[in-house]
Simulated scan of single mutants.
Amino acid sequence: MRLNDPLVTYFTYKGTEYELNMAFDNILDVFDRLEDKELTNRRKARRCLKLLLPNQEIPQSIDEIVELWNYIYENFILFKEKEPITYDRKGNPMPVPKDEEDDKRHIDLEQDAEYIYASFLQAYNINLYEQQGSMHWYEFKALLNGLPSNTIMQRIIQIRAWKPSKHDTAKHKEEMRELQRKHAIHDIEREEVE
Rank of each mutant, 00 (worst) to 15 (best):
V30Y: 10
V8M: 04
N4G: 00
I85D: 06
H186G: 01
E81P: 06
I77N: 01
D88S: 04
M22N: 00
E57V: 14
K80N: 04
A123Y: 03
A23F: 04
R42L: 10
H136D: 13
K82L: 12
D88H: 02
P95Q: 13
Q154C: 01
K163R: 15
I126T: 02
Q154L: 03
H172F: 15
I62P: 05
D108K: 03
E100K: 12
N70R: 13
E38F: 13
E178F: 15
M135P: 02
N26C: 12
E178G: 02
D63G: 03
Y18P: 03
D103I: 10
E38M: 12
H172Y: 15
P148V: 04
A23N: 02
A45G: 00
A170D: 15
A113N: 08
L121N: 08
A170N: 14
M176G: 03
M1N: 03
Y13F: 14
R181Q: 14
Q56D: 06
M176S: 01
D103H: 15
L144S: 06
D25Q: 02
L34V: 01
R33A: 08
A184N: 12
Q158G: 12
F24R: 01
L39N: 08
A161H: 04
M153R: 00
D99F: 15
A118C: 09
Q56T: 02
P54C: 10
L68R: 08
A161L: 10
M94E: 13
A142F: 07
E67I: 04
L39F: 14
D29N: 10
H172G: 05
S119H: 01
P97F: 09
S149R: 15
E139Q: 14
N127S: 13
N75Y: 07
K104M: 09
Q158F: 10
L7M: 07
K141E: 11
L20V: 08
I159D: 01
T86N: 05
E57H: 14
D5A: 11
I157W: 02
D36I: 09
Q180K: 12
F24M: 10
A113S: 12
S134V: 12
E67S: 11
M135S: 02
R155S: 11
Y71T: 06
Y18G: 02
E189I: 13
K171A: 11
E192C: 10
A142K: 13
A170Y: 01
L49M: 02
E192P: 04
A142V: 08
T86R: 09
Y71K: 00
D103R: 14
K50F: 08
K37W: 06
K141S: 07
Y124H: 03
L39I: 05
Y117F: 11
Y129C: 05
N70F: 02
N150A: 07
L51S: 08
L121T: 00
R2V: 03
Q132N: 09
M22W: 02
R43D: 14
K37V: 08
H136R: 08
E101Y: 14
T151P: 03
A118V: 05
S134R: 15
W69Y: 15
E130W: 06
L52K: 07
K80T: 10
T12H: 09
R181Y: 09
I27G: 00
D25L: 10
I159K: 02
S149C: 09
Y18K: 05
A142Q: 11
E83L: 03
I107C: 09
K90E: 11
I116F: 00
E139H: 13
K82P: 01
F24V: 04
E175P: 00
I156S: 05
L49S: 01
T151W: 07
C48F: 07
